[in-house]
């Protein structure tokens, strides 16, 4: 039955034929350049490119998450608000496959933004700090938080992998909210609230000493803490965190697909 890749292509067109996508990408790269330039102006060139790249990635990954969550939250909801869902569904494709094509396009977008941030921080900071390093910068023995026995590039790559895993869980959550509520505003609002309130919720819960806290989603979203450590928070391992995230992921996916498949499209 037809060519599934064509469905993914359709969904990609809906993402990349809109100005907002380029505004997001532009803001992200612009922010990278801005931070590097400010750093150059304020504290000179006595820094390695890795230090700047790390801090930029650390700060701006939040932007990647926000933009990806927005695209994920809009994906299904917008078809409902514009009414195009009716024309989209009455084709010889099951609803599950149509939803899958949307989900793939959303994950692709998140991956693209992640790669864009990784690439632009490396390039911009290599140009600013790495190309003609100062004497002081050359002498610096790089020590980023958690970096042990690995090169800076290796460290940064691990950082992005950890961040991306959590990002996929977050956009899956946003995608689910989008499908359940059929309202982009509500899905964006809820997903971003959960994202931004995460630290507060975590620090609140860390005051409590209950076992079930270890099974909450938000306890496991910051995987970068595992870089250079085998256990954190008194005994949790990376495998345990990934297992918990995987469980939530499967739950989100199952709920999303079940609801989308069963729902009456009216109004």
């Amino acid at each position: 039955m037809g060519d599934f890749l064509q469905l993914v292509r359709n969904e990609n067109i809906k993402v990349y034929f809109r100005p907002r996508t380029y505004i997001m990408a532009g803001l992200l790269v612009g922010a990278v350049i801005l931070i590097s330039v400010m750093w150059l102006l304020l504290s000179g060139r006595d820094t390695t490119m890795w230090t700047v790249a790390y801090w930029e990635s650390f700060i701006l990954f939040l932007l990647v998450t926000i933009f990806s969550v927005v695209i994920a939250a809009v994906s299904v909801a917008e078809e409902f608000t514009s009414g195009t869902i009716k024309l989209l569904l009455i084709r010889p494709w099951s609803r599950s496959k149509i939803l899958l094509s949307k989900y793939i396009s959303v994950v692709l977008f998140a991956a693209l933004l992640t790669v864009l941030l990784f690439g632009s921080t490396l390039l911009v900071n290599w140009l600013s700090f790495g190309l003609f390093p100062s004497e002081t910068a050359l002498a610096i023995q790089e020590q980023l938080p958690g970096q042990e026995n690995m090169s800076s590039l290796q460290f940064l790559f691990q950082f992005y992998v950890m961040k991306f895993i959590a990002l996929v869980v977050m956009i899956t959550l946003a995608f689910m909210l989008s499908t359940i509520f059929r309202s982009s505003a509500l899905a964006i609002g809820l997903a971003l609230f959960l994202l931004l309130a995460m630290d507060i919720i975590n620090s609140l819960f860390s005051l409590l000493n209950y076992k079930w806290i270890d099974y909450l989603l938000f306890t496991h979203l910051d995987l970068t803490r595992y870089i250079g450590h085998t256990t954190i928070d008194g005994g949790m391992t990376l495998g345990f965190s990934l297992g918990i995230l995987g469980l939530y992921y499967v739950l989100f996916i199952a709920l999303t697909w079940y609801i989308f498949d069963k729902r009456d499209v009216a109004g």
Binding site: K14, F17, S82, G83, K86, L87, I90
Partner: peptide
């Protein structure tokens, strides 16, 4: 089919 109004992707 057209169900109710023919809603299309307006940005395309």
């Amino acid at each position: 089919a057209i169900v109710e109004n023919p809603e299309m992707y307006k940005y395309l």
